[in-house]
Design a protein around this nucleic acid. Structure first.
Length: 216
DNA sequence: CAGTCGATTCACT
DNA sequence: GTGAATCGACTGA
């Protein structure tokens, strides 16, 4: 029995908390992306926390730069970055303002607008793969550089919103090391800051960090 | 200013 | 399971 998801937007105070509190609480929430063609809605199933000042894996670890400046701004805003020369990934900034902490949205289940998501994700072999992975999620939702800095808590016309949905009971929340993140000095992540919904088929596979080999 | 490599994905073996 | 694709931010000299 699934109760009707709560469509109330999450207020800014939801995000104005420590990132390790917000990240697991985002599971089961609903991200709504409004596009010219219509809305795409996604239920979050996997996230990762990045805590600026303490976290060697965070883009904000070495201080503020033009790229990561949104992370240093107010909570509830969207930090979008470009990586590997071809992909975008999206985060939600957490509190307190200036701490530069954020949650990477890693995977989700498309619950509305699947035909729009499929059109952007032609390589997906089934609907479970539409948003299985952070760059796939951003691609499926049509999130790119232009949405960097967007306020996901603004009222009125917004390209992006987060609704209350149905929070996941804590006994269904799994946690472990983050995917593809280098630890402090070592090769693997030292923090169990990846959170996902137990046994959910849309969660992406774990991969340890691998330093890239040099090209000839 | 050149070198390095990334919060990844996809095609192919 | 392995390697290529692809580019720009960041680092250090």
């Amino acid at each position: 029995m699934i109760a009707t998801p709560d469509r109330t937007p999450l207020p800014r105070k939801f995000f104005d908390r420590p990132v390790l509190e917000v990240a697991p609480d985002l599971l089961g929430r609903i991200l709504v992306r409004t596009t010219p063609d219509g809305p795409i809605a996604l239920r979050l199933t996997e996230v990762e926390a990045y805590d600026g000042p303490n976290d060697p894996g965070s883009h904000a670890y070495r201080g503020r730069t033009p790229r990561n400046s949104v992370m240093f701004g107010p909570p509830g805003h969207v930090y979008v970055y470009f990586t590997y020369g071809m992909w975008f990934c999206m985060n939600l900034v957490c509190g307190p303002e200036g701490r530069a902490s954020a949650v990477l949205l890693r995977a989700g289940e498309i619950i509305e607008g699947a035909e729009l998501a499929r059109a952007r994700r032609l390589s997906a072999r089934n609907d479970k793969e539409l948003a299985k992975g952070p760059a796939r999620l951003a691609t499926a939702l049509g999130v790119g550089r232009s949405l960097n800095g967007t306020d996901a808590c603004a009222s009125g016309d917004t390209p992006l919103r987060v609704l209350s949905g149905t929070p996941v009971p804590s006994d269904q929340v799994c946690k472990g090391p983050r995917t593809g993140v280098a630890g402090d000095g070592g090769n693997g992540d030292t923090h169990p800051w990846r959170y996902w919904i137990a046994d959910d088929p849309t969660v992406s596979p774990y991969r340890a960090h691998v330093p890239r080999r040099r090209r000839s």
